[in-house]
């Protein structure tokens, strides 16, 4: 592998690390910023895998918030009602949504984009009704209170910040690595043209189901973290609107790049914090999305912006040793 290939994979990770450090410094000055940064990290964890599934693989999902809720309720029930340790419940919080997603993926992912969006949002609605009705386990509309904070991390905001951002960094690195690999190439082919992907030997159903399952697992992890961080989980905490907002972040930020979902999550969180009233927010978000997509169909961060990196990544052997490449020593 040429150094530049590795660089095109590392650079988004470095940028994210930069964002995390900046937020941490700001958080030390003004502690309330930590609350914002944890929220951004949490949204990013949900949005990044959707970016991979939708932006690279072309399969839309409005279920990320729902899978996060499954992960959150799982740990809430297991730790509060059954006295499990949070680390034991982590396995189930990640595993349950992942397995659930894998099982339902096959029939769903064959659907065209719009139907898939509708079906996945219906799925989240079903989850919500189940949470509301299974009162004995979930506490119904009132939810579950008194979820213990995580050991070590506790209620310390800076620790929470670094936990969630470390997870974001790992997911972003894996995303970027995958896209650079031969499997990433096959995934891209699925988005462009399923017949092309099949005719070049990709098992489309398996590929998309695995990614759908992985996205759900990461969402489950985010939900697990959320439940222990907030200490309370109700059906309204992570509701269907969140799923829609996650897709909004991915599309706004840039569905085809690693940084896109994080940029989307940041803008969304900052705007929610700064703008008054939910009604005004909806209006502004709606207009913003229209304007940005008209001018930048691929979102704010598009692969075109990174084209110089991409070109270097595919340098043919003869040109490999061309001197004067600025990036080489970064």
């Amino acid at each position: 592998m040429t150094r530049s290939v590795r660089l095109s994979r590392i650079s988004p990770v470095l940028i994210i690390l930069g964002i995390a450090i900046t937020l941490a410094i700001a958080g030390e000055v003004r502690p309330s910023i930590y609350a914002t940064s944890v929220t951004i990290g949490f949204f990013s964890l949900l949005a990044l895998p959707l970016g991979l599934l939708y932006g690279q693989g072309g399969a839309i999902s409005l279920a990320q918030g729902g899978f996060a809720a499954v992960g959150a309720f799982t740990t809430a029930i297991l730790t509060v009602k059954f006295g499990w340790s949070p680390f034991a419940s982590l396995v189930v919080s990640v595993g349950l949504p992942a397995i659930l997603a894998f099982v339902i993926a096959r029939p769903l992912l064959r659907l065209p984009e719009l139907s898939l969006a509708l079906v996945t949002i219906s799925l989240v609605m079903i989850f919500k009704v189940v949470f509301e009705r299974a009162e004995r386990l979930t506490g119904g509309y009132n939810g579950i209170t008194g979820i213990a904070p995580l050991p070590i991390i506790g209620v310390e905001r800076s620790y929470a910040h670094w936990t969630v951002w470390t997870a974001v960094l790992i997911v972003a690195y894996c995303y970027a690595s995958y896209v650079e690999s031969g499997r990433g190439r096959a995934l891209n082919a699925i988005r462009v043209d399923r017949l092309l992907a099949e005719s070049t030997g990709t098992n489309v159903a398996l590929e998309l189901s695995s990614l759908f399952s992985l996205s759900a697992g990461i969402a489950g992890f985010a939900g697990w973290f959320y439940a222990h961080y907030i200490g309370f989980m109700a059906p309204d905490s992570l509701d269907p609107t969140l799923s829609a907002n996650i897709l909004f972040m991915v599309v706004l930020g840039g569905r085809k790049s690693v940084l896109g979902p994080i940029v989307g999550a940041s803008l969304f969180t900052l705007a929610s914090d700064l703008l008054p009233g939910t009604v005004t927010q909806g209006m502004i978000f709606g207009s913003l999305l229209i304007v940005i997509l008209v001018f930048f169909p691929d979102g704010i961060v598009s692969p075109g912006m990174m084209r110089w990196t991409r070109r270097r990544a595919t340098t043919i052997p003869e040109a490999k040793n061309t001197p004067g490449v600025r990036l080489e020593r970064a």
Binding site: M1, C174, S177, Y178, S181, R183
Partner: peptide
């Protein structure tokens, strides 16, 4: 592929 191992 996810781990970006050198073998890839």
């Amino acid at each position: 592929c996810f781990l970006g191992l050198p073998s890839v």
